[in-house]
């Protein structure tokens, strides 16, 4: 994470710029294979918010309860690629834990999960 006294852009550069400064343009970084429906939840945000940048603290509180990466991005109004990098930084420090979304395995369809989804929709 960038340290607080590094100045990358001035205020006039707009609201998006600071998250970019924080992620240092690491938009391709996907250490943990986070995708839209990876579930994330923060661990003790009240403790860890004190040792991170404000934008990271917002993210910790944004996933105080388990949510998908897509929901965290929507909540914090940050582009997906930025949120993924910032979440990965927090995962690396063990401030956030994650669970990868369902992935199909070729030739071994997960009929059990599919059936549960179908039953769940029928009950709506």
């Amino acid at each position: 994470m960038a340290s607080r006294d590094e100045v990358w852009f001035d205020d006039a550069a707009g609201p998006l710029v600071r998250p970019y400064a924080l992620t240092r343009g690491r938009t391709r970084d996907n250490r943990y294979g986070l995708d839209l429906v990876t579930l994330v939840v923060s661990v003790q945000p009240e403790v860890h918010e004190r040792v991170v940048e404000p934008e990271y603290a917002d993210l910790l509180w944004g996933c105080e309860h388990p949510l998908s990466v897509a929901e965290v991005a929507a909540k914090t109004n940050l582009p997906l690629c930025v949120v993924k990098v910032m979440l990965a930084d927090l995962i690396e420090r063990n401030y956030v834990i994650y669970r990868t979304g369902w992935r199909p395995v070729r030739n071994t369809p997960d009929m059990d999960t599919m059936q549960k989804v179908l039953d769940g929709i029928r009950k709506l």
């Binding site: 429906v37 990876t38 579930l39 388990p66 998908s68 669970r99 979304g101 369902w102 999960t113 989804v117």
Partner: peptide, 11 residues
């Protein structure tokens, strides 16, 4: 109420 962290998420 949202999912649990160990929930299976599908789309």
């Amino acid at each position: 109420a949202g999912p649990a962290i160990d929930a299976v998420a599908v789309k």
